[in-house]
């Protein structure tokens, strides 16, 4: 126990030193080298970050931009993972579903969600639909594959166990295949949420009137590096929180899969 406390202490000290050194280097670079023409120093960035959150960037505050991005991600992600998981489970369990959907899916999957941006604008215009469609794709592509492998790799002996206890095919699917695939599905959701977050930022960078992606894009157009960096920090924080929440959800849902053994 003591060892552990010591290790945490050392790690914390090292973290402070290394991040401090990084900030110092940044500060030094922006004050004493040619970088000063291009980059604001860390103090400016952090103070403007707070300013942006309280005040406005473009038409609204940075917080509102973030909430806009978040709303898009959540709607698209929910729809995409729902469809993806259902399709993936069916494809994993039933050869027929796999034969029908897999070739089409295999064709769509390697196209990065971002490459859909131009066509989604052609199809859905510049409104919300185009962005939600993209996030839908990002979530869909990642969850389908994982749900499928999850459903395919259920221990056959466990399926036998449920059959001898009287489960019919539909019951095997709902009571055995689905819960057994949960860890694998969560692995897909984990990748999916990161991919969805990246996609929304990209979509907003290319065409939007608000959102975090718009913030950094507008920063580029106005040659405002401070705004870009503030936007990046916000994107990073939200990205981290989304991944963190997903990990916690996985821990709760897959308690039976971890520990012991």
């Amino acid at each position: 126990m003591n060892e552990k406390v010591k290790e945490t202490m050392i790690s914390a000290i090292c973290a402070v030193i290394s991040i401090g050194a990084f900030l110092l280097l940044w500060w030094w670079g922006t004050h004493f080298t040619t970088l000063s023409k291009l980059m604001p120093d860390p103090v400016t960035v952090f103070s403007s970050l707070i300013e942006y959150c309280v005040g406005t960037v473009g038409k609204c505050s940075l917080i509102v931009h973030m909430l806009n991005s978040l709303r898009r991600v959540l709607i698209g992600f929910l729809l995409g993972s729902l469809v993806g998981i259902s399709l993936g489970l069916l494809m994993g369990r039933y050869m027929l579903a796999r034969a029908i959907f897999n070739p089409i899916f295999r064709f769509i999957r390697p196209i990065p969600p971002i490459a859909w941006i131009p066509i989604s604008i052609v199809w859905f215009g510049l409104g919300e639909q185009a962005k939600i469609f993209l996030i839908f794709l990002a979530a869909f592509a990642n969850t389908t594959l994982n749900a499928m492998t999850g459903a395919m790799s259920v221990d056959p002996e466990i399926i036998n166990a449920s059959r001898m206890l009287g489960a019919k095919e539909r019951q095997i699917f709902t009571t055995i295949v689905i819960p057994a695939a949960v860890p694998s599905i969560f692995a897909g959701l984990q990748v999916g949420i990161s991919s969805a977050w990246a996609s929304v930022v990209a979509a907003e960078m290319i065409k939007a009137q608000n959102g975090l992606g718009w913030t950094i894009q507008a920063g580029m157009d106005n040659n405002n590096m401070t705004q870009i960096l503030a936007g990046i920090i916000m994107i990073g924080v939200v990205g981290f929180l989304l991944a963190y929440i997903m990990r916690k959800a996985e821990e709760v849902m897959c308690r039976w899969n971890k520990s012991g053994r």
């Binding site: 990246a198 960078m205 580029m220 994107i235």
Partner: peptide, 10 residues
């Protein structure tokens, strides 16, 4: 946690 493409403007 920052998606790679968010660095593009910078």
């Amino acid at each position: 946690p920052v998606p790679g493409l968010a660095w593009i403007p910078m």
